[in-house]
Design a protein around this nucleic acid. Structure first.
Length: 413
DNA sequence: TCTGGGGTCCTAGGACCC
DNA sequence: TCTGGGGTCCTAGGACCC
C-alpha cells in the first residue's frame, strides 16, 4: 500500500461499488451471440453462474445441475472458461484503474473506487459513475451495475439493489430511508445462519436491527459480528478504500465424486494439488509457513488439518511431505466416511526475497525427488497414469521439461 | 448429473511466556 | 499454599462472500 489519504468528507457520496452482472454468463453471451437473450447456466454439475434469463425461472448459484435443468428446461449449459473470465476481469479493472488510483478489488467481478478527490478533474462522483458504466460496456462489452454512496457498505448495497445493469446513488440525507426497509439478508456479512437467528427474534429488516442496543446484538451474534452489524445498521462504516490488499492464503481443491478411493489414488490427487498450489505461490513471490489439508465427506461434513513450519517455504517437495503427513492422519476417517473433496491451502504467507524464491526454481532436484518418490511408491507407470487421469478430468498437469537440458525451467510434476 | 473453486474473518481452547 | 493478569501462537471448526 503506497497511497495514504485523509478520510473523505463525511457529507459526500464519493465511493463507487462496481459489480459486473451475472459475470460468467455475461461473458458467454458476449462471446457467443447465439446465447444472447437466452437462459445461460455456467457450470455442469453445479451452477456457478446463471444469466438473468435463467434466474427468472428460479435458478440460483450453487444449485445442483439437475434441479437447475428442471426449473429451466430451455437453459443452455456451458462449461466454465476460467481463462476467458480472468481476461475479461483484467480488461474491466483496466477501466477502473483509468478512473481513479484508489481501486480496491474485492473479487474477480467487483471493486470499490474512491473518486472523492477527482471532482475538479473528472466531475462529480455521479458523472464518473455514469461514464464508468459506459466505458465498461464499450471497451469490454459487459453490463455492470454501480452504487454510489458515502460508505463502502452503502455503495455495495446500492449496486446490488440497482441490478441488473443499473446505477443507484444514495444521497447522504436519505441513507436511513434507503437502508432501513431492506431485509437483513442484504447486509454484508449476514448469511443464512445469522439471518435465521435474527428472524427467530422477530428481526427482519435492517431498521429492526437499528433499534436493538449493541449489547443485545453482541449477545445474539458474538462480539465481532454484533458490533459490526450494529454499526452498519446506523450507516457507520469508516473502512477506507484500500488499493492492493495482500493475499493472506492461497489454495486449491478438487471434488472427487462419490466412488471409493484408495490411499494411492488420494496420494496422486495430493501430489497434483501440492504441485499446482506451490507453483502459484512461487509465481506470486510468496512463501508459506502453514499447510492446511481440507477434506469433505459423503455426508458433506468437513474436516481440516493443519501444520505450521518453523520457516516459510515455497518448496514443492517439503510442502508435499507435510501434506502427506496430514493426510496419513486422516486416512482412517477418509476410508470410513468416503472422501468427496481434497484441498490444500497455504497460509501464514510471507514475502519471499529473491534468493528464497530462486531456490525452488534453480534446482531440478526437488521435482526429481517427487517424481522418484511417486515412481517408488506406485511403480514406473504411475506418473504417466496420473497425467492421463488428470487429462481425463480436465486438469492441466504439465509434463516435465526436457531432462537432458538442466537449464530448462521446472514445469510440473 | 446432488453439491465447484477461490477466498476472508471470527471463535474457542490449549500451550506457552512473562 | 495457591494461583493473577496480560499476551502470542497454533489448531479446528464455522460463517460468509463471490
Amino acid at each position: 500500500v503506497f497511497v495514504s489519504r485523509p478520510p473523505s468528507s463525511p457529507a459526500t457520496a464519493s465511493i463507487i461499488h462496481a459489480d459486473l452482472d451475472a459475470f460468467f454468463a455475461s461473458v458467454e453471451q458476449r462471446d457467443d451471440p447465439s446465447l444472447g437473450g437466452r437462459p445461460v447456466i455456467v457450470g455442469i454439475g453445479v451452477v456457478m453462474c446463471a444469466s438473468y434469463e435463467a434466474r427468472a425461472c428460479g435458478v440460483r448459484g450453487a444449485m445442483g445441475g439437475r434441479e437447475a435443468r428442471q426449473r429451466c428446461p430451455d437453459a443452455v449449459f456451458v462449461e466454465p472458461r476460467m481463462q476467458a473470465y480472468a481476461d475479461a476481469s483484467r480488461a474491466v479493472f483496466e477501466v477502473f484503474d483509468d478512473t481513479t488510483p484508489l481501486v480496491e478489488g474485492i473479487s474477480i467481478d467487483e471493486a470499490f473506487l474512491d473518486v472523492g478527490g477527482l471532482r475538479r478533474i473528472a466531475g462529480s462522483p455521479i458523472d464518473i459513475a455514469h461514464r464508468l458504466r459506459a466505458a465498461v460496456r464499450l471497451r469490454v462489452g459487459l453490463p455492470i451495475s454501480v452504487g454510489v454512496a458515502r460508505t463502502k457498505f452503502l455503495a455495495k448495497v446500492a449496486s446490488a439493489v440497482s441490478k441488473p445493469d443499473g446505477i443507484l446513488v444514495v444521497d447522504p440525507d436519505r441513507e436511513s430511508s434507503f437502508l432501513h426497509p431492506l431485509p437483513v439478508e442484504r447486509m454484508w456479512g449476514i448469511g443464512a445462519k445469522t439471518a435465521q437467528r435474527l428472524h427467530q427474534r422477530g428481526i427482519r429488516t435492517i431498521g429492526d436491527i437499528a433499534v436493538v442496543p449493541e449489547a443485545g446484538l453482541v449477545a445474539m451474534l458474538g462480539p465481532a459480528a454484533g458490533r459490526h452489524v450494529h454499526s452498519l445498521s446506523h450507516h457507520r462504516d469508516p473502512r477506507p478504500v484500500l488499493p492492493a490488499r495482500r493475499r493472506r492464503s492461497i489454495g486449491t481443491q478438487r471434488a472427487l465424486g462419490r466412488s471409493p478411493k484408495t490411499p494411492e489414488a488420494l496420494d496422486i490427487v495430493l501430489v497434483g494439488l501440492v504441485d499446482r498450489v506451490a507453483r502459484r505461490l512461487r509465481q506470486c513471490g510468496r512463501l508459506a509457513r502453514t499447510v492446511v489439508l481440507r477434506l469433505r465427506f459423503d455426508d458433506f461434513t468437513r474436516a481440516t488439518r493443519s501444520h505450521t513450519l518453523d520457516h516459510a517455504t515455497a518448496d514443492t517437495a517439503l510442502t508435499l511431505s507435510v501434506a502427506r503427513g496430514l493426510m496419513a492422519g486422516s486416512l482412517a476417517r477418509a476410508h470410513r466416511d468416503g472422501v468427496t473433496l481434497v484441498g490444500i491451502t497455504l497460509a501464514n504467507l510471507e514475502t519471499a526475497d529473491r534468493e528464497q524464491l530462486m531456490l525452488p526454481f534453480a534446482t531440478r532436484r526437488h521435482v526429481d525427488a517427487v517424481v522418484d518418490d511417486v515412481r517408488h511408491r506406485y511403480g514406473s507407470t504411475a506418473i504417466n497414469r496420473a497425467v492421463l487421469l488428470g487429462r481425463d478430468a480436465g486438469i492441466e498437469m504439465p509434463l516435465l521439461p526436457d531432462p537432458a537440458d538442466p537449464s530448462s525451467p521446472v514445469g510440473g510434476t
